[in-house]
Write a protein that binds this DNA or RNA. Structure first.
Length: 595
RNA sequence: GCGCCCUUAGCUCAGUUGGAUAGAGCAACAGCCUUCUAAGCUGUGGGUCGGUGGUUCGAAUCCACCAGGGCGCGCCA
């Protein structure tokens, strides 16, 4: 199949022409030659920096090379003008025919238009959410969930073989605390006379998860097992008796809730991995053994952090991973004082497991509060990858503040003003939550304005984009009523030379840049670019629509001009299709009509 | 104290991995529309890209230092 990315096509033309002007061009220099869309339509449709890039090696002025290049490029079919501009750019003014010729390409490829090949079917593992199974999901988890899911979709569209994965953190102390908290709800359910405070004193470390969401866990345990896990007086029995079953029941029910929430959010996974299973099968020990063989593990003492000491600091020798050999600032501990593994140790084993399952690129989507872990995890992956190409990218998601009625909604578990994901979904809806979460770079803080997310105005990008799609569909429905075949195959054969209005050409140009955008966004691991593209595309379409209000000859369906109508219907169909495939990457529903 | 992230128009934010005269929405200002393609339209003004140096053909983008905001800093995940 021919490349449907016209920027690739022209980059090849540029390189070919350049080879005649500057023979023996070094590879690395050629790689820096770009063909990009212009910001300003006065600069034509595309520009190349070729002359600037090679001028030093060629020992000729950029203007000189640019002039020669422009001359050769101007001779190409479909290039109306090629001219040198600025410090040595060559601007290409394409023939409208070339741009119009993209419409049949789009319509034939349909939703596959924009698919890229840069992924080369490389195995990518995208790990996201991985919320602790100790309670319901809240807004903090939501951003990572949406960003991870959209990023995975984007990479798949760019030609990677993607696995979406969730790690269940079911091995650490927090799960022990969960079991104790669930056990309290169990005692309550069977009618204990203990008070919460009395109970808390019996819990190692105190009772932690006091939310009401554990009540059903206690009730189920009571219903299934009666009083057998408590003492005769309905007091705290020995943990050996109840701990296992309570933990398992609580974990299972928490994960059911989390999966329901993810489902409501439209976030899906190919695989759920259990940290506990990994530990039980000895993966952590095996990984530590491997690192030991590599000479990367030693017993040592860490320097205390500079500045004020933590209250409970005491020097201690511990098992350390030589992270400094791979770019980290300090070596990192793998064992706690009680001999169990640190989370970091288990996470190394987990990443080793992902590599063993074939992942060449791993991408972890983390909350910003895990930022301090980035360099150590990357160090560990570098150590384990050895000479293989495997590597780890980490996408950090900054915190989300929620605004309602112009006020910041304070979130505090203690104050009970803690917004769960489910609350947000009920109030705002899945599409608006997902799209809005993608209207910022993930590493920038975000204010999520609930009022704006549900508003039906241009300020709300979700609405604006969906409305553009609905308008397209409305035109297409009307076209069908007039007996027009709106299938892609039929419209792909329609003559389009009647499309020549500036607003129409702007829209076509935007559509033609979709494949390039997919590629760039995937390389940058930035799904938010899709959302911004759709907003701009919607703007182009609304602009064209509005032109039709002032000037009736610009309306899409013209009763007395069947051929012009068909061309415009093709343009509308292509617009709807690109919006739909962009929304598919974001996991947002394309609405058919808005009433 | 150290490390990482951030700082772009009055406000909220983009900026195609170093490209041309830094863009969009809101707000402001000025017109238009009272429609049949509902949830308005068109245009205008608005900038020391936090600051100062540096790298080079070229810097919002890369480097150094400084200021302000956020996150983190051995047995939490």
């Amino acid at each position: 199949m021919t490349d449907h990315n016209i920027f690739h096509l022209f980059r090849n033309y540029v390189l070919a022409a350049l080879a005649e002007i500057v023979p023996d061009l070094p590879e690395d220099l050629a790689a820096r030659v770009e063909v990009t869309p212009t910001k300003d339509e006065a600069h034509g449709d595309m520009a190349t920096n070729a002359a600037l890039v090679v001028s030093k090696v060629a020992r000729r002025k950029p203007q000189e090379i640019g002039a020669a290049l422009a001359e050769k490029l101007a001779a190409l079919d479909f290039v109306e003008r090629a001219e040198i501009a600025g410090p040595g750019f060559v601007n290409l003014h394409l023939s409208p025919d070339l741009l119009r010729a993209q419409l049949p390409v789009m319509l034939r490829r349909a939703e596959n238009y924009g698919d890229a090949t840069i992924g080369q079917n490389i195995n990518v593992n995208v790990e996201y959410v991985s919320a602790n199974p100790t309670g319901p999901m809240h807004i903090g988890h939501c951003r990572g969930a949406v960003v991870g899911d959209a990023l995975a979709n984007l990479l798949a569209k760019a030609g990677f073989a993607v696995t979406k994965e969730y790690l269940i953190n079911d091995a650490g102390g927090q799960v022990t605390a969960l079991a104790w908290a669930a056990y309290w709800r169990y005692l309550e359910a069977i009618g204990t006379s203990l008070t919460e405070e009395e109970y808390s004193e019996e819990v190692p470390g105190g009772l932690q998860y006091r939310g009401e969401y554990l009540i059903p866990v206690g009730q189920r345990l009571a219903a299934e097992h009666g009083g057998r896990y408590a003492t005769e007086t309905k007091g705290v029995a020995a943990p050996e008796i109840w701990f296992e079953i309570v933990r398992e029941t609580a974990l299972e029910m928490m994960m059911v809730g989390i999966r329901e929430d993810l489902d409501l959010l439209g976030v899906t996974f190919d695989r759920f991995s259990s940290e506990r299973e990994l530990v039980l099968k000895g993966a952590t020990d095996a990984t530590i053994d491997k690192l030991t063989e590599m000479g990367l593990i030693y017993q040592g003492m860490l320097e205390p952090p500079k500045g004020k000491l933590p209250d409970d600091w005491e020097p201690r020798e511990q098992m350390l991973f030589r992270a400094t050999a791979f770019g980290d600032d300090v070596d990192r501990p793998l064992r706690k004082s009680d001999g169990s593994n640190t989370y970091f140790a288990n996470d190394i084993a987990y990443h080793a497991d992902k590599m063993a399952r074939g992942a060449e690129i791993m991408i972890d989507v983390w909350g910003a509060d895990h930022g301090g872990y980035v360099s150590r995890m990357q160090a560990a992956v570098k150590a384990l990858a050895g000479n293989s190409k495997a590597h780890l990218d980490i996408v950090l998601c900054q915190i989300v503040k929620v605004l309602k009625g112009g006020e910041l909604v304070r979130m505090s578990k203690r104050a009970g003003t803690f917004i769960t994901l489910r609350d947000l979904l009920e109030e705002v809806g899945r599409d608006a939550v997902r799209f809005t979460m993608l209207t910022r770079k993930s590493d920038a803080q975000m204010d999520f304005d609930i009022d704006q997310a549900i508003a039906q105005t241009r300020e709300n990008p979700v609405f604006y984009v969906q409305y553009a799609h609905a308008r397209c569909r409305s035109v297409l429905r009307a076209a069908v009523e007039q007996g027009i075949d709106i299938s892609g195959e039929a419209l792909a054969d329609v003559p389009t030379s009647s499309l020549e209005n500036a607003a129409e050409m702007t829209l076509i140009r935007r559509l033609a840049s979709w494949p390039r955008l997919v590629e760039q966004a995937a390389l940058a691991r930035e799904p938010h670019r899709i959302a911004f593209f759709l907003y701009e595309l919607a703007g182009d379409f609304h602009m064209l629509w509005n032109r039709g209000r002032e000037d009736a000859t610009l309306r899409f369906l013209q009763a007395d001009q069947p051929e012009a109508t068909l061309a415009r219907v093709a343009l509308v169909a292509a617009t709807a299709m690109v919006i739909r495939s962009g929304l598919a990457v974001l996991g947002v529903t394309p609405v058919e009509e808005m009433r």
